[in-house]
Simulated scan of single mutants.
Amino acid sequence: MRVLAAMSGGVDSAVAAARAVEAGHDVVGVHLALSRMPGTLRTGSRGCCTIEDSMDAQRAANIIGIPYYVWDFSERFKLDVVDDFIAEYSAGRTPNPCMRCNERIKFAALLEKAIDLGFDAVATGHYASISTDDHGNRELHRAAAWAKDQSYVLGVLTADQLAHSMFPLGATPSKAEVRAEAAARGFSVANKPDSHDICFIPDGDTRGWLAERVGAEQGRILERDGSVVGSHEGAHAFTVGQRKGLNLGVPSPDGRPRFVLEVKPATNEVVVGPKEALDIAEISGSKFSWAGLAPDDATVPFDCEVQIRAHADPVPAIAVLRDGVLVATPTTPLNGVAPGQTAVIYVGTRVLGQFTIDRTVSAVPMPASS
């Protein structure tokens, strides 16, 4: 097969590209230039897709012996990931930019261009596996090493995208083994730290970054009964479940800490309360997709597991498609769920699908605001 290897400049994608070559594929490496500031360099392990990363990717491609190109996707990235991130926070939701990047850039824009150029598949360094059922349908599954499993952030992939995807690291038992293989191959990135945080906010100051783009306007912090307990400089800086940075002027009657329960961008208000009020009995969303073959009849409730963060534990649940909305009811309450997060549905190790959380139902009824 003709395979386009997406090379981020990290150790995982370099080893994935090398393994694709050794599997007998005709491989071409490509690095995506996503930054609108091409002179930016990484700081430690923050950020990705910078000039330094591009050079690291090219050195790995040279050792592997494959052609290497840099494709400028910065405009598409700004529109589909960065601007979406700002809009979601402005609406009081908590988006996952890595999900949007996989959905709209790596497995949409990149894959579309790859297919137009005659490639059969795109290979990445994600830790996930693809298998085929008895009828030839492709399925997305967790990686062999659950500690490094990245199937959650790939939950947005559709059946058509899975048909053209390749994850050479899926069966690897540990990241240490990948680093050892990279060192044996002579890759300079063998001990390069993993990137973390939001790649387009490399200093990690999300609140300051948003304030520059959305603006800061003082608003009220309220208890669930509507009483004012503090003030803030912009509701967009808060997310459900947050505890730090509230700066409340009125202590809680029981002395326990308060957490953000709701963000109201229309009124620029933040609602806080006790930790137990974060327990969620039901989540749902109308923006959903199936990763491969859809259930025979999703309108019939089915057993599954739901995962709401990349590093969260999956929770047993019952899911059902009701009036065009995918609803998941966990057997034990979820904690600190925010609208805008992605819920990924698993059946065993298989990723069945995902939805963006539009609505949550609290396990602890919230008193009406005054």
Rank of each mutant, 00 (worst) to 15 (best):
A5K: 01
S8E: 06
S8F: 04
G9W: 11
G10S: 11
G10E: 01
V11Y: 04
A16V: 11
R19L: 08
A20L: 04
A20D: 09
E22Q: 11
G24H: 03
D26C: 09
L32P: 12
S35L: 05
T43E: 08
S45M: 12
C49H: 06
T50L: 01
S54D: 10
D56H: 04
Q58T: 03
Q58C: 13
I64C: 01
G65W: 14
I66Q: 08
Y68G: 11
W71M: 06
D72N: 08
D72C: 03
D72Q: 03
S74M: 09
L79A: 10
A87R: 05
Y89C: 12
G92D: 02
C98G: 14
C101H: 01
A109D: 04
L111S: 05
E112S: 14
A114G: 05
G118V: 14
A123M: 01
A123W: 01
G125D: 03
Y127T: 07
S129P: 07
S131Q: 03
S131D: 09
G136M: 06
E139R: 07
A143V: 00
S151H: 01
V153I: 15
V153D: 06
G155Y: 09
F167L: 02
F167Q: 00
A171P: 13
T172C: 13
T172R: 11
A176V: 13
E177R: 12
E177C: 15
E181F: 13
E181W: 11
A183R: 06
A184G: 09
R185H: 09
G186T: 05
F187C: 10
D194S: 10
H196C: 08
I201L: 09
P202A: 06
D203Y: 12
D203T: 08
R207K: 10
R207N: 05
G215S: 12
I221H: 14
E223S: 13
S227C: 15
G230L: 02
G234L: 06
V240D: 06
L246G: 08
L248A: 01
P251A: 03
S252E: 06
G255H: 07
G255D: 10
P257R: 00
E262I: 09
E262W: 11
T267C: 07
V270D: 08
G273Y: 00
A277I: 04
L278N: 07
A281N: 05
A281C: 07
S284W: 00
K287N: 12
S289D: 12
G292M: 03
L293E: 11
D296E: 14
D297M: 11
V300F: 05
E305S: 10
V306F: 12
H311M: 13
A312K: 04
D313Q: 06
A317P: 02
V320Q: 10
L326W: 00
L326D: 01
L326P: 03
V327K: 02
A328Q: 09
T332R: 14
A338E: 04
A338K: 02
P339L: 06
G348S: 03
G353L: 04
T356K: 11
T360G: 05
S362Q: 06
A368Y: 08
S369K: 15
